[in-house]
Computed example of a mutant assay.
Amino acid sequence: MKKHNPLLQDLKAILPAIAANAEHTEQLRKVPQENIDLLKQVGLHRAFLPKTYGGLEISLPEFTDCIAALAGACCSTAWAFSLLCTHNHQLAMFPKETQDEVWKDNPDATACSSIAPFGQYEEAEGGIRFSGDMRWSSGSDHAEWAIVGFNRQVGEQKVYCFAVIPASDYQIEDDWHAMAMKGSGTKTLQIRNVFVPERRIQVAKDMMEGRSAGFGLYPDSKIYFTPYRPYFASGFAAMSLGVAERMLEVFREVTRNRVRAYTGARVGAATPALMRLAESTHQVKAARAFLEATWEEHKEHGERHEYPSRETLTYWRTNQAYAVKMCIQAVDRLFEAIGGNNWFNDKEAQRLFRDVHMTGAHAYTDYDVCAQILGRELMGLEPDPSLL
């Protein structure tokens, strides 16, 4: 039996307003400020904020339930805001001095990101000077900080690192013109020769293995003795699930009273519609059960202050990718039979169809990659660095 989730209950009260804003969100190509304000009013942005700064430190299953529900109302909003939330978990692994910079005077502050290591840098006294056009930064219009990726030369090796940069040090290029997640505001950060002190730089691998500067700052916490990446990526599968669950509802609403234009036949009572709805319902319920079991493992490891094995990490990532694949299949099965009227831009079903496919387009949820990762693990082969 699930524990009561007060944050989810508060969130549900504002979802009708966010759903009503969904078409406007797409037209705006970013999350409207009113959506951000509503979500901050219920405190969702504080889900992974340390309690020291007034955060909630809720469990991953509680958070993903919230994101799934939010995605059912507006996946663009969920995509951007989920990342603004999960970046707090990542920032909690930076030194205390950095955390104070971000949150001490403004505990409502959030960070966007562009973590692929495409940034360029030069070594400087006390840090680096960073430059780059950092793409794919969702929710950047509403963030006070950015986490950006780069490969730093350390001896003979290139080491994947993150740098934290204030919004005052970059420009946002308004270049997000996409066919899905249209309102996520996933824009490009233009960064030019910005000084980043060492206290705002961390090694990615350290954040996966409990060696980051912030490790152990919160000994009573149940969520910070965990690798950063599963928390960072958890929202993608949660959003896919939320969209698929909403599609089940929309299909029933649209199909129940639909009649065929040329024959007058009732579609909602026809065997093909019933079978499609039944199979997609089973598939979505299976995806939820699979994800909940996976997220519960995340929670239990954090509560025990136990870092997962390589095998466990492999399952955590690939389980979520497979669940996304199931959700996409479930939505496709329904959309291809929901009728031509639902291809109009003002229909919810076509937006759900577009957005669910985007949830499977992220590097973390690409199942072609994930199947290879799991296959190698199952066969006892060493990980292929090109697949990570």
Rank of each mutant, 00 (worst) to 15 (best):
C75N: 14
F225S: 13
V331E: 07
D37V: 06
S234L: 01
F290Y: 12
I191E: 13
L11D: 04
L381H: 15
E173G: 00
K205A: 15
P272A: 13
L60I: 08
L28A: 12
F232T: 00
V102A: 02
M181G: 01
A73S: 12
D368W: 07
A143F: 09
A289C: 01
F236C: 03
D368S: 13
M93N: 05
V254K: 15
E144T: 01
V254A: 07
V331F: 00
T255D: 02
A238Y: 10
M207K: 03
Q27F: 03
I165D: 11
V324W: 08
N35H: 07
A80W: 01
D100R: 07
G54W: 05
N257G: 07
R152G: 01
K30R: 11
E209D: 13
K285I: 00
D174V: 05
T312A: 15
F81C: 04
W316N: 02
E57M: 02
E253Y: 06
K347Y: 05
Y315V: 03
T86C: 07
W145V: 02
T52D: 03
E336D: 09
T77Y: 03
E311C: 00
R304N: 11
C66R: 04
A167L: 03
A180C: 05
Q190M: 13
A330K: 02
V42Y: 09
R304Y: 05
G132V: 08
E336Q: 06
R266D: 15
E62F: 03
W145Y: 13
T98I: 09
A323M: 11
K347C: 09
F344M: 11
Q90G: 02
N106C: 05
Y170H: 13
G54Y: 02
K325Y: 13
Y307E: 12
V324G: 08
I18V: 10
G149H: 05
I328V: 09
D220R: 12
T77I: 08
E249T: 14
W136V: 04
A92W: 07
G264I: 10
Q33M: 11
A69C: 09
S131V: 11
E300Y: 00
D10P: 00
R351W: 04
N342E: 15
P385V: 13
L291I: 08
I223H: 04
K205S: 13
V369D: 11
P32N: 04
A237Q: 08
S212C: 13
K285R: 14
A278H: 11
E123N: 14
S114W: 03
T110N: 12
S140A: 15
A237C: 14
E296V: 00
M379W: 07
M179G: 05
Y231S: 06
T98H: 06
Y315T: 01
C327L: 04
E125Q: 15
I328N: 13
A330N: 08
V148E: 08
Q157T: 10
L15V: 01
P61R: 00
E122I: 12
D100I: 03
S212M: 10
Y228H: 09
A237G: 11
G185T: 04
Y262I: 05
L217C: 06
Q190L: 15
T318A: 15
M134H: 07
A269W: 10
Q27S: 10
A289F: 02
D332V: 01
F130S: 05
G119F: 06
E97W: 01
M181W: 02
D37L: 03
Q320K: 06
M326K: 14
L291N: 09
V154R: 04
A233H: 05
T312S: 12
I373E: 07
P383R: 15
I58Y: 04
G43S: 10
G55P: 00
D133Q: 08
M326P: 00
G155M: 11
